[in-house]
């Protein structure tokens, strides 16, 4: 029984290390190449097939800008991705610490109405950033910088 749990812990560490390595490699590539100008990242299928921006459109470009410290440009690419990032990062860090130390960081209990609000925000954002009339194109990737 004891032995089982030890191998369990080891495989969990291996999984965590694998994930960290993958994340680090992804961030390094994302730091080196700008998705807006280089062909390293394939275009989004939805955008290529329909011409529509999904709520996640611009998030890679936003994270590239963030990695270079340009918060304004990042927000212009995808405000939703940038604004939710601290919460996502905290959740992932909490999970990593749970694997290592067996305890989560203090959990953030998000009240249900906030989560429903987020749902509505995602749907509204998805529609709004595709509308052709001012000021909605500001929400399209790069809209706030006049890049599109």
């Amino acid at each position: 029984m004891r032995k089982l749990s030890v191998t369990g812990v080891n495989s969990k560490y291996a999984g965590l290390l694998g994930m960290l390595a993958a994340v680090a490699a992804g961030l390094a590539v994302l730091h080196a190449f700008d998705p807006a100008t280089s062909g390293v990242f394939p275009p989004c299928p939805l955008l290529a097939l329909t011409g529509w921006y999904c709520p996640g459109c611009g998030s890679l470009r936003a994270f590239h800008q963030l990695l270079h410290g340009n918060l304004r440009n990042a927000l212009a690419m995808n405000p939703l991705a940038v604004l939710t990032l601290p919460f996502l990062a905290y959740g992932m860090a909490s999970y990593a610490i749970f694997v290592v130390r067996g305890r989560y960081l203090p959990r953030i209990f998000v009240p249900a109405p906030w989560i429903r609000g987020l749902c509505v925000a995602v749907l509204v954002f998805a529609i709004a950033r595709n509308l052709p009339t001012y000021p909605f194109p500001l929400l399209a990737p790069g809209g706030l910088l006049g890049l599109r």
């Binding site: 989004c44 939805l46 999904c54 709520p55 996640g56 459109c57 998030s59 939703l80 991705a81 939710t84 919460f87 996502l88 959740g91 992932m92 998000v110 989560i115 987020l118 995602v122 998805a126």
Partner: peptide, 13 residues
């Protein structure tokens, strides 16, 4: 919630 936001923002609406 973290997982849900990640898959939503990564385009699987």
């Amino acid at each position: 919630l973290v997982f849900a936001i990640v898959v939503t923002v990564l385009c699987c609406l």
